[in-house]
Design a protein around this nucleic acid. Structure first.
Lengths: 113, 113
DNA sequence: GTAAGTAGTTACCTTTAGGTTAGTAAACTG
DNA sequence: CAGTTTACTAACCTAAAGGTAACTACTTAC
């Protein structure tokens, strides 16, 4: 056990928790889409133009398990399903803003010039 | 072209820029380690106890290419190499704080209870 | 009865991420 | 001259992420 403690194990844990939620190609786009209001499967698919139904369905399930979104089935005549963000998902707004803000700055400084 | 614009292509781009930098098991731990001061290869390795030299070297190179860190070679007698954070890397502090803060909240609400 | 829209699933494949083990080269230490 | 330290690299392998194409089941509209 070092005194400075190797990057503090607790920090690493918490880091991985957040990464599990935001990691991957589709999770943040889905979350952003649902932050704009409840949506049905097809609506999200149209929002994120290049996601396949397989990936969308898979990631929606994962986000549901992570308690970030909720799935509600309506027994209307063409069955509809509505996805919505939970309070926990909603609490990601600040984090999302930071991610976008830093990305804009990064793009300005090193990509776009 | 829809009026609402499918989650705004620009937002998606910026999102992917940030994700490229923070994604993966080792990048954020490395960045955090270097935010605590310049370090040598072996020091970072000791900070992040379970990283292999292969992964560390690979991710250090990647972060250098992304302009987040700098590698400096010293022609001292046992050759030493020092890694340090760039101003751009330093600008990630706020983002990192958000990631950690959200992770703590998440852990409190759904993991640890 | 054929097409279109609802919300997915299934099988298969490729790519990327990450891990393991061992080895290298150069200089210093005893 | 054997062992240690510094900073890696190479070869090999497994697992996870992601993509493609086709298919399902139900209902309504034409």
């Amino acid at each position: 056990m070092s005194q400075k403690e190797d990057i503090c194990q607790h920090k690493l844990l918490v880091l991985r928790d957040t990464l599990e939620v935001i990691q991957g190609k589709w999770r943040l786009p889905i979350i952003i889409s649902l932050l704009h209001g409840n949506k049905r499967f097809g609506e999200i698919q149209r929002d994120i133009s290049d996601v396949s139904p397989k990936m969308l369905s898979q990631e929606l399930k994962a986000l549901e398990n992570l308690k970030i979104i909720t799935r509600t089935l309506f027994d209307s005549m063409p069955v509809t399903v509505e996805y919505s963000i939970t309070p926990l998902g909603n609490s990601m707004k600040k984090l999302l803003d930071e991610i976008l803000e830093w990305g804009v700055q990064y793009r300005k400084e090193v990509i776009g010039k």
